[in-house]
Simulated scan of single mutants.
Amino acid sequence: MLDPYERSAEFLDLLIAGTWQSLGPALGEVLQQVRAGSGPVADVGAGTGRGVRAICAALPGDDPVLAVEPSSVMRAVLLARVHEAPELRERVTVLAQDAAHASLPDGLRAIVAVNVLGHLPPDERRFLWESASRRLAPGGALIVSVTPPFVPERIPRTRMATATVGALHYEGWATAEPSGADEITWRMDYRVLRDGLPLSEVAVDYRWWVASEGQLAEEAAEAGLVMRAAGKPDLGLQLLTRQGE
């Protein structure tokens, strides 16, 4: 399968840095709500490792962190980030797997899947709910992010992020079109400019599955999980625990 990140990985970590300035601390606060006191933490769809860094900062100690990332180009940035930081290098194991095939152990303190659900078709989403229900330690939790759009709809072209490094300015633009009963296709345009003049542009399409919070909560309930909002509403973080815990 073609990896869309082969063309966009150059820009992604740079352009998501601003988002993680608020998302990282918020994720840390939600992790503090998890009642399980110890055990490994899995970051499924770890990307370039900004979430891994937030997890380790929020949960100091030596409990292992499993960073699951299927894209080799994203994993290259992730592994470099882990290796260059001693506090990460001693705890974090990087796994070249995806959410549906990750070899996760039992007794997990938490599973983190931030900015991941849209990558998963409905059957793989249900696998995530069922895996969490089986693998979490008592009091453990699955943490996901749920953000719009919740139905297939057109998203007008919007500048999502910018950054400047040296003499070059980087921009990320997004638009989306419905492409199925429960999916959209994102078109991402990454531009590099110097003195206001374009040097290069890369366009990448991403397939993205959409679902409402209610639909996701119903799916999770079928696997014995209860979903509730956690943290600032605009970030869309949701905490899922087993029924009765």
Rank of each mutant, 00 (worst) to 15 (best):
E183L: 11
E219A: 08
R91Q: 03
R135H: 14
L14D: 03
P233A: 11
F150C: 09
M188L: 15
Q238A: 14
Q243I: 05
R135W: 06
V146A: 10
D123L: 04
F127T: 01
F150S: 09
P86K: 09
L59A: 03
S179G: 14
W129M: 01
G118W: 00
E130F: 02
P122S: 00
V116T: 13
L12M: 14
L237A: 10
R109A: 07
P121Y: 01
Q97V: 00
A221R: 13
R53A: 15
A36Q: 09
E171D: 09
V73K: 12
A230T: 07
A54E: 04
A80Q: 09
S133N: 09
V34H: 06
E90W: 12
P198F: 07
V68I: 04
E87V: 13
A110G: 08
R228Q: 15
A229S: 15
P156M: 05
I111R: 06
P138W: 02
E153G: 11
P86A: 07
P121V: 01
S179V: 08
A181R: 12
S72D: 04
A99V: 00
G28V: 05
D195T: 11
A76T: 09
L88E: 03
A229D: 14
H169R: 14
G118M: 02
T175Q: 15
M227R: 11
V112T: 04
V94D: 05
P198G: 03
W20T: 07
A26N: 05
D234S: 14
A9Y: 11
P40W: 06
I111D: 06
G107D: 11
S145I: 05
A85K: 13
I184D: 07
Q238I: 06
R134F: 06
T175W: 09
I143Q: 10
L78Q: 03
Q243F: 10
H119C: 01
P70H: 00
F150E: 11
L88C: 13
L120A: 01
A67P: 03
R75N: 02
L168V: 12
E171Q: 11
L108Q: 08
P4Y: 12
P64D: 06
V77D: 05
L23K: 04
E124A: 02
M160F: 08
Q215A: 14
D195K: 10
D189T: 13
I111G: 08
